[in-house]
Design a protein around this nucleic acid. Structure first.
Length: 249
DNA sequence: AACTCATGCAACCGCGGGCTC
DNA sequence: TGAGCCCGCGGTTGCATGAGT
């Protein structure tokens, strides 16, 4: 169907926001609340499109936003949620108070992705890269997985064990990616369990993390990246965020 | 000091979903 | 039921800044 542009392109300003514009938008939202973004620029006296106003507000001006780098445990949470949800940044962001989908997406693409790759973990599937290469390069034979070198074999077993545990526990649903072959039913279970409870996961998640198999990744040099503190942070992540963050970065 | 390259972040764009009529 | 509209999402781009040569 034909779509009208989100705003009149003529006379609409683009590019970086000035502090004057920020002030206008901030004042307007503060006094009128968030409503009908299409009308916001007009009412607030801005030469911007509503979309741009919404983005600026949600990604930058919102008073509840945290600024600065993601903490260690926030990163861990992002990794785990990404394993469950894939690139659903807004869903992931909804579990991290004060963080925006854009921020998380950027952080994923610039930091976490690289760290995972360096560790030999596919950032898309969250599976060990070595394992994937073996599987893909040796046709569809299931035997290939049995012939993994020792470190990869340990990883594989770890993954299997975790999946088995998760499959047998109603309180910790299987990951979307690692169990992608199990069908849509699993995903709906995951989503149900995730979204029925809207409280942020930041404090509770790592007790049952499906990426806990990363703990066994010592042979991939994980200690170089600070993953050796997974065990510590599982039990008291929020309390140790700042100190762990310094190790991590 | 000047240049190039890499990195990180803010912002834009196009599309899909949901709602209304 | 389907067209029109708006909002929100995810992918991508562009620019500013820092590091390296």
């Amino acid at each position: 169907m034909g779509r009208q542009p989100c705003c009149d392109k003529v006379g609409v300003k683009k590019g970086p926001w000035t502090s004057e514009e920020d002030k206008k938008l901030m004042n307007f939202i503060m006094s009128n609340g968030q409503c009908c973004w299409r009308t916001v620029p007009k009412l607030a006296g801005l030469k911007r499109c509503g979309k741009s106003c919404r983005l600026r507000w949600t990604n930058y001006l919102r008073p509840d936003l945290k600024r600065g780098l993601l903490t260690h445990s926030e990163e861990q949470l992002v990794i785990d949620l990404h394993a469950r949800l894939g690139n659903r940044w807004s869903k992931i962001a909804s579990r991290l108070p004060g963080r925006t989908d854009n921020e998380i997406k950027n952080h994923w693409n610039t930091h976490i992705k690289k760290k995972l790759l360096k560790m030999g973990i596919d950032p898309v599937t969250h599976e060990p890269l070595a394992k994937q290469q073996l599987v893909s390069s040796s046709s569809s034979s299931s035997e290939s997985a049995e012939q993994l070198p020792e470190p990869q074999q340990q990883l594989k077993e770890s993954v299997v064990n975790n999946n088995e545990q998760e499959n047998s526990s109603s309180s910790s649903p299987p990951t979307e990616n690692s169990c992608s072959a199990s069908g849509d039913g699993d995903e709906s279970l995951i989503l149900n369990s995730l979204w029925l409870d809207d409280t942020p996961l930041i404090d509770a998640l790592w007790d049952t993390t499906p990426t806990s198999w990363l703990l066994d990744c010592q042979d991939f040099g994980i200690h170089d990246f600070g993953f050796n503190c997974f065990n510590e942070t599982q039990s008291n992540a929020p309390q140790t965020l700042e100190t762990e963050e310094t190790k991590w970065h």
